[in-house]
Design a binder for these strands. Sequence first.
RNA 1: GGCUGGGUAGCUCAGUUGGUGAGAGCGCACGACUCAUAAUCGUGAGGUCGCGGGUUCGAAUCCCGCUCCAGCUACCA
Length: 526
Amino acid sequence: MSSGRSFYVTTPIFYVNDAPHIGHAYTEVAADMLARWHRQSGDDTWSLTGTDEHGEKILRTATANGTTPQEWADKLVRDSWIPLLETIDISNDDFIRTTDERHEKNVQVFLQKLYDDGFIYSGEYSGLYCVGCEEFKPESDVVDGVGEFAGQKVCAIHSKPLERLEEKNYFFRMSDFSQQLLDLYEQNPEFVQPESARNEVIQFVRQGLNDLSISRSSFDWGIKVPWDDSHVVYVWFDALLNYITAVGYGQDNENFERRWPGMHLVGKDILRFHAVIWPAMLMAAGVKVPHRVFGHGWLLVGGEKMSKSKLTGIAPHEITDTFGSDAFRYYFMSAIHFGQDGSFSWEDLSARYQAELANGFGNLASRALAMVTRYYDGVVPAPGEYTEADLNIQRVVAEAVANADAAIEKIALHDSLAAIWTIVEELNGYITIQEPWALAKDDAQRERLSTVLYTVTEGLRALAVVLSPTIPKATTKLWTALGVEDSLGALTAQPIRSAGVWGQLIPGTTVGALEALFPRIESTDA
RNA sequence: GGCUGGGUAGCUCAGUUGGUGAGAGCGCACGACUCAUAAUCGUGAGGUCGCGGGUUCGAAUCCCGCUCCAGCUACCA
């Protein structure tokens, strides 16, 4: 069953202080759909997610909550982030925390190597410091003062003047890698995707890179710099390394060779860290860069980026409580062009659920199995001679599977589902035209009826297999109802790339009852 | 300010290198059918392709200007 191909996909790790919203869930689902698809294709698949737990912010909230940062992080991981994965039915193979020993220890290994090889030096970090925030402010949080502070730079939060302070930091010689990065983007056009993201990254690097301050000494919640324990590692530098420490960097070379390099799925807001800083770090350390970095778009609510401050943040469970995890997964993967920003609205979600999942796919399964039960006592009949209409269905199924797989290779998740959905549409149309209920009234048409119902049921079998990575719960129910567990094996063991090969369903199989896969949801004000 | 992406039917969006009367899904109207989750199938109505110029035999598609929306402008993750 193994294809011999290695497929390693990662999501960004969650900053534990955030509240889970559908943006986090969106990335997770996309990575999971890819992982399930590859896993079911026989590829040597590994999917990773996890949490980012260091940094001053976490130290502060922990202190404010009267606890230690470790306990605070433990609580958030347990109460927020692990449950999120369950809410949206993620099948990750591993979950790394930046407080794991395997991570902390090997971040130090990595850093020490860069230090020994001369890529790190001690310098002065000069920045604008806000006394109110007790921290250095990035330029994005700095605004021009007004009124009595006109002409000065002030903190966006406190509106008070910032002080220019200097602090001893360790710096990474990132500026040395500008050209190597540009060469990478040039020689490997797929390294950063989609195209629009690639252009922005190239444009940015062309302006020249500054060295990166990678340590902090004003607080101590982080990984100690190995040669100077008065400093902790800058959180991003720490966090990015999770992608390799999770698969054995520094301690399990065999596993590391097996998994790395992988591909990263990230939101476009953190693309720069992944497409610039991260490969530069790896180049310095002599480690291969990732296969690719895919920056997806944002979910827009009311035309704007979803945000907590504007009260447009939506918790995943708000959707799954009503529609279920399958609908959540299907909706975001099919309705939004992966890579571009996409609009979310309850109306759209509700409409698509009804039209596509309930009326389209769910009802198809329902009417098909009902007829097998009604006309053949639940035993799938053997097909007779195929007509052009039947052969057309076979072609549609084969093409849909091939097209869906090709789309997955391009990380065009929406295209993949669109290809698969042609099967649903063809099958519904086929049933209407063939009118099995009319055939059933005429004994002379018994063989024709058998052929029609076999065709529909076999089509459903293929649908269950290729939809399994997207809507695992519903397809599992369908698989059980099809009664093929004994003859064909578990759903997730069905090789997905050959799902379109006709005739896998064995006549004589007894189908069972099928509850509504996607029951109608009584419309509310949603 | 600079940079990027975008403004196409009521809604969400497709529209390769310019060329048969501008498309899809949903929604809507009408019709067919009854196996099915009051589901399905078919037909139809609906658009000054943001605005103004220009290039061209011909532009939603190229060039110039304008306007509107969103985002980015590095060490908060």
